[in-house]
Design a protein around this nucleic acid. Sequence first.
DNA 1: CTCCAGGTCCATT
DNA 2: AATGGACATGGA
Length: 299
Amino acid sequence: MLLLTVPDEFSFSQTLAYLSVSSAECMYQMKDKKLYKLLKIDDIDLLIEISNPTQNVLQISFINQPKIMNEKIELKVTKYIQDWFDLDRDLVPFYQMAAHDPILSKIAKQFYGLRNIGMPSLFEALCWAIIGQQINLSFAYTLKRRFVETFGKSITWQDQKYWLFPTSGQIASLSIDDLTALKMTKKKAEYLIGVASLIESTELSKSALLDLMVQKGEKEAEKQLVKIRGIGPWTANYVMMRCLRASSAFPIDDVGLQNAMKFALGLDQKPTKDEIKTWSINWANWESYATFYLWRTLY
DNA sequence: CTCCAGGTCCATT
DNA sequence: AATGGACATGGA
C-alpha cells in the first residue's frame, strides 16, 4: 500500500466522473469509487487499486502482487499516477485566468479539481489519436477495444479482465491486413504500423520529444511530430496535450472543441478557426486545459 | 437515405 | 498556397 499526497486543486470524484464517461474504455475499470488499472513496471504486471480515503490523499494498493513491492517499484508507480492525473501542475493560475474568461468561468467552477487526465505512454497516445481521427467517439472506442483485445495482453483477477496496451514491437510486426480486419481504414493501419516502427527503432521517443520541448519549445515538438506520416496538426496537438503535457497544445481543428465552444457561446453554428483564435487569446499557455475542460462539457 | 464524426493524405489547380 | 475527394463504420 502506498499513500500519495495530492494538491488542494485536485478532485478524485471529478476524476472518476470524467473517467466513467467513456463507458467503452477498456484500459481501466471502476467499482465502488475505486479505480483499477493494470500497469507493467519493470516487466511485472501490477494491478493497482486507487482510492481516496481522505482529503488530499490517494491510496494505491497492489492487488495481484502484494508481496513484490519495493521502493523502486513504488516510486515508478507514484510517478505514473502523478503523470496520469497531472498532479505536479499548479492549477491556481489556470483558475485565476478562467475566473475572468467568458467561456471558461462557469465550467472551471463546474469541474473544479479536474485535471487533464493523460496517457503516459507515447505509443498509446499516438495510437488512440490516430484511431480517433475522423470517426465518432463511440466507434473510436470500439476500434480501440478491438485493437487492445486482439493485440494486447491481459490478466484476469476475480473474473474481470485487465488489459495492457499492445506494445510498439507487437504492432510494428503486423501487416496492414491484420489491422484492416478490425474495420479501420487502410491508411490508419499504415499510420499505426509506421508509428510503431519509429518507436521500435527509437527514432521517435517520449524522452526525446520532452527534451526538445525544454530546449526549443513546444512548437518545435509539434513540427517534429507533424513530419511523421499520419500525424497532422490535430494529432500532434492532441498527443502533446495528453502525453507530453504541453500547456499550450491546442487542437484547434478539433470538431469537439468547435462544438463545445458553439454551445458555451450559444452560437447557431460552429465557430471558425479565426473566431476560436480570438476567443482563446486569454488562454495563452493554458490552451490545453481550456480544451480539456471544454471537451468535458460535451458529455 | 443522407450527413457527420475528437483528420490526414494526396492529387489537382 | 489552396481546395476537394477518399477513406470505413455507425449513430442520428
